[in-house]
């Protein structure tokens, strides 16, 4: 049951620098661990995170095995116009999740 927590300011003034915070539920299994019987625990991580604003990419990150479970990714952007942020997480084993948040720019 993956779920995301998104923190985007509801309102901003044009030109403001705003902080966007995202938290995605994911185990981020490194692929370096072994079970008691010696089998490798298969890697299961988020490999890519993308944020688009009104269709245009504003932030992207590649993720690797050293990143902790439930990745918390925050970044800054400039509020230019009202619109919608779309977030996308893609990972191993066909993991694909999306979330959205709207902002009103005055």
């Amino acid at each position: 049951m993956p779920s995301a927590l998104i923190n985007v300011p509801k309102k901003a003034r044009r030109g403001d620098v705003i902080e966007i915070k995202t938290l995605m539920s994911h185990i981020m299994e490194t692929g370096y661990r072994h079970t008691a019987s010696g089998d490798v625990v298969a890697r299961d991580i988020i490999t890519s995170f993308t944020c688009r604003f009104n269709g245009q990419e504003v932030f992207r990150a590649d993720l690797f095995p050293a990143i902790a479970a439930n990745p918390f990714i925050t970044f800054f952007t400039t509020a230019t116009e009202s619109g919608k942020f779309e977030f996308e997480w893609i990972g191993d084993k066909g993991f694909s999740e999306t979330a959205q948040a709207s902002i009103t720019v005055e």
Binding site: M1, S3, L5, I6, N7, K21, L23, S25, A69, N70, F72
Partner: peptide, 14 residues
């Protein structure tokens, strides 16, 4: 302190 940064809140949502 911040519910959108607290990973425990993911379980609360679950």
């Amino acid at each position: 302190d911040e519910d959108t940064a607290n990973p425990g809140m993911l379980s609360v949502l679950d």
